[in-house]
Every structure is written in C-alpha cells, then in structure tokens.
C-alpha cells in the first residue's frame, strides 16, 4: 500500500536493531508517519528511482525525508547520497545522514554531496530517542517541503 500512497520517511539502515530502536523512538514521539525501510544501498536506490521491485512506484512521490546510514552493504551510503543529489528529479528530497560515525571526513563528505543534515547516532538510547524525535519533528512537521 505504501507503494501507491507514497511514503513520508525512507529509512536506509542495515542494522535491524537500530531500525527497531528508531521506529520505537518515532512511536514514542507520536510520529506515526508512513516509513519505508531499505536494508542496503542497492535497495534504497531501487526504491528511490523506482527500479526492480519498485517499478510501479511513481518517482514524483518522493519521501518527505530520507534517513540514510553511511555504512551500508552493496552500495555505500555516500554513493546513495551522491546519486540522489545528482538526479534532478530527486535532488530536492531532504536527506538526513544518520550514522554511528563521528569521523570528520564523513561529515565533510556528506555535506559536500548535499546532505541536508548529519546526525550521529548516540550510543545511549535516551540520546538516540531524543535525536530521532527532534529529527522527525523537524523534517516531518516543521519543515515545508518543496512541492513536486
């Protein structure tokens, strides 16, 4: 059903645990938006560019925000980011890099490729939940997305 109505959040993360924690955090923050999950970079690209199993999806129905981990199987998160931001149809979609890495070069590379935000997943769940909550509030409720 998500396919047809369009999702509001696309979450790209290979870690099952992190995903569950994130969903939990969203739920705790009463953000009950439609969320699509991609488990690796290739899957994320298929979804975003309506390829393979997502052929029927309309590319115009972009998610309101993409939460992107950097360390991903198959296709690297930075590459996914680069593909999103270099395609005129998808480049206006906000991408929030959500990763464990605090490495300066990752931050720099992400912003250079056009990431809209860079958030380090805190180890402690309180912090993580807080971060997810703030993130959701901002991107899904406060931010005024560009109309496509």
């Amino acid at each position: 059903m998500d396919e047809l109505r369009g999702v509001e959040v696309l979450m790209v993360d290979d870690s099952e645990e992190d995903l569950q924690l994130a969903l939990r955090a969203f739920k705790k923050a009463n953000l009950l938006n439609r969320i699509h999950v991609a488990r690796d970079g290739a899957e994320a690209l298929d979804y975003i560019f309506c390829q393979g199993p997502h052929e029927k999806r309309r590319i115009e129905d972009t998610p309101r925000v993409i939460l992107l981990d950097l360390k991903l199987p198959k296709v690297d998160g930075l590459e996914v980011l680069q593909r999103i931001k270099s395609d005129p149809r998808t480049k206006i979609t906000p991408v929030v890099v959500l990763t464990s890495s605090k490495e300066h070069r990752d931050v720099l590379a992400s912003y250079e490729l056009g990431a809209n935000s860079y958030i380090v997943k805190p180890v402690a769940f309180d912090g993580f939940a807080k971060a997810m909550q703030e993130l959701g509030m901002y991107w899904l409720l406060l931010n005024n997305p560009p109309k496509t």
Partner: peptide, 12 residues
C-alpha cells in the same frame, strides 16, 4: 562505526 552500533543495541 561498528563498535558503537552493538553498544547502542545493548543500551537501547
């Protein structure tokens, strides 16, 4: 990157 994820799982 990798060592923090399991810790987060533990805590979370």
């Amino acid at each position: 990157h990798d060592l923090r994820a399991p810790l987060r799982t533990l805590d979370g």
